[in-house]
């Protein structure tokens, strides 16, 4: 294909990605180094109130917003360097924690950024092996079923995957919140009254269970599709060579599925690193927050109607650095595969 024709084909898609992904990234970087604020001016205001003789006057200094000719508040943008990053990262506290000053580490883990980072990484890394194992187990299991059972199995398995994440999280929450049916059941089993939404670790556990329930079906369907392309003569050859079931799995099936396992792991790490809907669905923000929730929170107008855009941008940039580190090994692997293929 000629370069010109090629460019013609890819142009619209590239234009959209340039305008709505690449440029926003540049703008986020710029915003994280700048701060926009309303301009205030100190003014002396004399206020008087009638009193017994004459009136009592008080002169006080007040901060008044500066208005432009049309009566709109004026705002100014100035360069603040790494101030927003400093607020998020709390470097003094970090160095204290690294040096092992007593209590500094706990204090650090109470900072929004660090508690979001801690939860996000735990969430992504804990769910990953379960998603891969359950997905693989389901794929191998359903593959042994008779044809008529496969359809219903796949249908029901797909439901947790296609469901809107916020709604899915809510559906689990309603089973457990307060005297929800499963909490009531668990309480009866345990013999004491349980309350799963009263402390952080139970909410965290529920969020992790929810995500496994939600994504394992995706891994299942991809692996199941991969099994359908497995060359059966290879299995038959292995059987003739006397390979046990475990050996066939280890030396024939898993190598065939390996590219798909990497693919699912890559997608899952990307998606679970941006964990967000669980926090909304479980209303977990008092106990657990994630990096993407933190940016969302800064972007949501506070009670005065201001959005902390600079701090949101700084937290966004830090989020990107985190995902880059997390995905580097997998991206390099994909890169090598592609480069070999090209």
């Amino acid at each position: 294909m000629k370069t010109r024709t090629f460019l013609g084909f890819v142009a619209p898609s590239m234009a959209v990605m340039l305008l709505f992904i690449a440029l926003p990234l540049v703008s986020v970087l710029w915003q994280s180094l700048h701060n926009t604020q309303r301009v205030f001016r100190e003014q002396s205001v004399e206020s008087c109130s009638p009193s017994f003789i004459g009136q009592t006057c008080v002169t006080e200094k007040r901060m008044q917003p500066v208005l432009d000719a049309e009566g709109r508040p004026v705002s100014e943008t100035r360069f603040i360097g790494l101030e927003s990053y400093r607020l998020l990262l709390a470097p003094e506290l970090l160095s204290k924690a690294v040096r092992g000053v007593s209590g500094a580490f706990d204090e650090l883990m109470r900072q929004d950024f660090y508690r979001a980072l801690r939860f996000t990484l735990t969430f992504a890394l804990v769910t990953l092996p379960f998603v891969l194992l359950i997905g693989l187990g389901l794929a191998l299991g359903v593959d042994t079923l008779a044809k008529i059972w496969r359809g219903p199995m796949i249908f029901v398995s797909l439901l947790p995957y296609v469901i809107t994440p916020v709604v899915g999280a809510l559906s689990i929450r309603w089973l457990f919140i307060g005297d929800g049916i499963l909490t009531a059941g668990l309480s009866a089993l345990a013999g004491t009254k349980l309350s799963l939404f009263a402390q952080g670790w139970t909410i965290e556990l529920l969020m992790i269970l929810y995500r496994i329930w939600h994504i394992a079906p995706f891994a299942f369907v991809v692996f199941y599709a991969g099994l359908q392309t497995l060359d059966r003569s290879q299995i038959e050859a292995a059987v003739i060579d006397g390979a046990t079931r475990a050996q066939r799995l280890r030396y024939v099936v898993l190598p065939h599925l390996m590219p798909l396992i990497v693919f699912v792991a890559l997608i899952h790490l990307m998606d679970s690193y941006r964990v967000f809907e669980e926090i909304i669905g479980f209303s977990a923000q008092a106990h657990r927050i994630s990096l993407q929730w933190l940016t969302f929170h800064y972007l949501t107008p506070d009670h005065t109607g201001n959005r902390a855009v600079s701090r949101a941008s700084a937290s966004a940039i830090l989020t990107i650095i985190g995902v880059a580190i997390l995905l580097l090994p997998l991206v390099i692997r994909t890169w090598r595969d592609r480069a070999r293929e090209a």
Partner: peptide, 25 residues
């Protein structure tokens, strides 16, 4: 073509709130 594909893969990893932070203003 190879570079465009790799860039797209990296773009897929961007958390959505990162992008929205760029759009809002």
């Amino acid at each position: 073509a190879f570079w465009l594909l790799m860039t797209a893969l990296i773009f897929r990893a961007m958390p959505h709130s990162v992008l929205v932070a760029g759009y809002l203003p």
